[in-house]
Write a protein that binds this DNA or RNA. Structure first.
Lengths: 207, 207, 207, 207
DNA sequence: GATGAATGAGGGTTCATTCAT
DNA sequence: GATGAATGAACCCTCATTCAT
């Protein structure tokens, strides 16, 4: 059965996509190998043939997720923009990307619950991120020289802060909605958060 | 067997404590009922006797965690402090509390991975949080009137931002450490983050 | 707690009644000791105090059920009635009693599923039934002499047949209703069965 | 392990047979999944692989039991026999079949103790029985026209009566043997019952 | 490359029963 | 006579993984 008979590339692709969806919805522990295989229209054995096992499949999904966001970030071409504009664009991008790729938070939350055990086996992830830090450092230095940003801001700390403002809101939206009695995922609420985050970060970094 | 013979209060307490540790380390799905019972020095059956089941036990742990942090927050007595000082104290507290209670992030991460399914059964959590919002609103209004804070800041958004700055750093420290090639849990790194967060939030809100 | 504090007789009675209901609804295996105690408003330990255990409690219920039906039968005073009238009265009674005491079938079905293991421990049941057989034999002999009944009918076989006509219908009503696509417990259906059974038995025995 | 390696048909069959025996001996509630698997020489997991669960397995056993008896009945070819002969043959068959397939009563007793919960999920059982009713109706009508049977006999009532005469005797033989102080399963007793039932039903229906 | 069948180690939960008071 | 707390053995079921084809 299956859709494409004897098309290795497509089979692999379908498994990876199905796995991403399953891991995102249920986390690593809650994900079911059978469901992934079924959703991919593939035999369960193929999953092991291509990826080795559940954990390795998870790592493959995670690595792809990192590659995707980094590549989208790279496409923003922030190196050549005005520092303030670059920062604003990055803040907006981070929020929007997380909103449009809800798998990312689940994947990361699950991996961290697991103490980063899977990512530890990755050999490519580290090098994927040095350009990002370099770019941020460049923006900060240019902005500082131009008197726009206050001094002493660490690029990694800044990146974490930017990500945090969106990530925490979205990844914890279920508990936060509950305890504050507000639906944080309502369109209005999302728009309000977008405004708040932009103002918050831009103020936090200004001179 | 067991440690405390015929002391219901202590038995319940020991189970709850053991559960908190187990749930924090492994999440709801990864936690093992047998391990909880063993760690509590109690018969597995007692867990069902006192709490009804794994999920209900998880909810009990979660509710207690919320009660604990809210009660510690309340003890800060921020209502009567200078607005800027109150805000700084709250930021410092949030960071420190999360650092000293690492269970909290795991618990919340797990619950959100589960779409807030357990918290939905809670009847007390909502009302636990209205005083917190009221207090933040009060601080913001006083600070605004005194010309210290910029206007238009929503207390809930602010609270989420403050929590986010610490939460995301600590809960995602495994993946972040890996991708940035830095040990984010090293004492030096923690101290640096504490400084960054304080400066970040205070700047973000200033006039 | 409980209703009557320190009234041994009533406590015992309440447990027995609760047990009868529980065993009737769920059978011996499906019955729950906790539910019996709860329904009786008694502590679970009392059940063991008064009856020894679940099986012994079941036997007590069973014996009482037998005593009840035999005593009601005895009250019919069939010895002094005309043979045909006596037979008809017995048939009607058997049907009506089973209908009004649905516990009886469940109890017996459960006990037979269990190969009569519990009844084997009873010392009173046997002697409870010899008067019944004697009475039936007397009716048959009188009727035969009067030319009303055909000869050669064994009283035990006859009794089993009479009971069977009602018992099988009522105890298997769920499966029978399903396979025949009729609700056998509808008032109309019950009345029809009553007529059928009376005609069936009276014809079966006539000369 | 296991007996037949890689023979799905046989594996399924062995599980079904083992289940029939286990359910018959212990009822649905008392049956043990482990015992079924062990008796089938199969892994416990296979039971769920093929049947979905304990209840579904029970239903499968039940449906097969119904199919078997209906198909044996059909093979009697009663449509073309003389009405009286047809009736006698059916009575004899019912008794003999029940005697040779003791699982049937246990299965039905258990299902009825459970209020027909499992059969309710069956989609095939209803239609399995309409031919039976039609055939009985035909026999009764022919017999009535020939002046052999009395009028007004409902085919479903008659079928239930025929089944009842054997079923109640056999399914309740443990309690009946006990209360009447006779071994109802002794060969002599069984032969006597067969004669009694035949005479009873034939007399009950005659003109 | 691909498949259905098979595996065994545990998962949470339930039960009748007994202990200490 | 009466109570709540405690026990351990099972029970049904699920899971990631591998075998035979």
């Amino acid at each position: 059965m299956g859709t494409g008979v004897r098309d290795p590339q497509r089979t692999r692709r379908r498994i990876l996509d199905a796995a991403k969806a399953e891991f995102a919805r249920h986390g690593l522990g809650g994900a079911r190998v059978d469901r992934i295989a079924a959703a991919a229209g593939a035999n369960k054995r193929m999953l092991y043939y291509y990826f080795g096992g559940k954990d390795d499949l998870f790592l493959a999904v995670l690595e792809e997720a990192y590659r995707d966001i980094r590549s989208a970030e790279h496409a923003l071409d922030l190196e050549h923009a005005d520092p303030r504009a670059a920062l604003r664009r990055l803040v907006d991008f981070s929020w929007r990307y997380l909103l449009q790729h809800p798998q990312l938070q689940s994947l990361l939350a699950s991996e961290n619950l697991d103490h980063g055990r899977n990512l530890a086996r990755s050999r490519h992830v580290r090098e994927l991120h040095s350009p990002l830090v370099a770019m941020l450092r460049d923006i900060l230095q240019r902005g500082e020289r131009m008197g726009l940003f206050r001094s002493g801001i660490d690029p990694v700390q800044l990146y974490i802060s930017i990500a945090a403002e969106g990530y925490f809101y979205l990844s914890n939206c279920h508990t936060l909605s509950r305890i504050f009695g507000r639906d944080l995922m309502a369109p209005r609420a999302l728009a309000a958060r977008a405004r708040h985050v932009r103002a918050f970060v831009l103020n936090a970094t200004r001179r």
